[in-house]
Design a protein around this nucleic acid. Structure first.
Lengths: 133, 133
DNA sequence: CGGAATCCGCGAGGATACTG
DNA sequence: CAGTATCCTCGCGGATTCCG
């Protein structure tokens, strides 16, 4: 009934954990989502994502590239142009990523509610507690 | 063919992003995975996960609890015992999490290979490059 | 056994300015 | 437009210790 033993791949140190920690990152998920519909330019992602800095975008893309999930395409043109796209390996992540993002879209409000319910319940509760200032 | 516009929920600041950033975290995914099969004791998770510290485990659980994904159950017994389990809201995450972890299990090796291929291709390449020490 | 508090180092990550 | 370098700050996250 335990389900997984002490040696389960995701509970120990193994390639699986490496892969999880590669994508379980604040920006990585959103960047992958941005790439999930086809090649995108650097500047497009930058404007699209909102909140990300150029540094973090480049850094995230570079890490994904180094791990074989993203391919970089630089065109030698007058106005320099660079596009990023998922590799075949990276494309296998589209489904998991979309499940995550759809979950977030559907349940983001509920998560927010839970937070607010906490705040509304905890802070006024201090009302009937002798406050030692 | 752009697919998503400039206002896509996951590319801007919104509840969906909050939800993504809640779970797109080094430890959160693994902890949720550990909870995905039923109630687990604090100490069990600690030993099971491997690499996590008590502090980070508690901290992660607390954050998930505050966001309504996890419920805490403390039993007033001689040897104190505390169990954690997913709330109904948290249970809706099981499928996405399992897709992620199964992807990692299947492709962790490929990711590792991509990394090694880079190292093997880049560093020996310095062989035929005049190295200015 | 489970958790909170404290100390502290190091690296994530933003802002800015510069190169090609 | 894309990328890099530099600086600086904040908080992640480990180790340790004390409380219930």
């Amino acid at each position: 009934m335990s389900g997984f033993g002490p040696g389960d791949p995701f509970l120990a140190d193994c390639p699986g954990r490496l892969a999880i920690e590669l994508i379980a990152d604040k920006w990585t998920v959103v960047v992958l989502y941005g790439l999930s519909q086809g090649p995108v330019r650097h500047g497009e992602l930058l404007k699209l994502i909102g909140g990300i800095s150029r540094k973090m975008l480049t850094q995230t893309l570079r890490r994904l590239q180094a791990h074989g999930l993203v391919r970089r395409h630089a065109y030698a043109e007058a106005p320099p142009r660079v596009e990023y796209e998922l590799t075949p390996l990276g494309a296998t992540l589209i489904d998991p990523i979309h499940m995550l993002t759809e979950w977030a879209r559907a349940n983001g409000a509920a998560v927010l509610d839970a937070l607010d319910a906490l705040d509304a319940g905890a802070e006024p509760a201090a009302r009937d507690v002798p406050d030692r200032s």
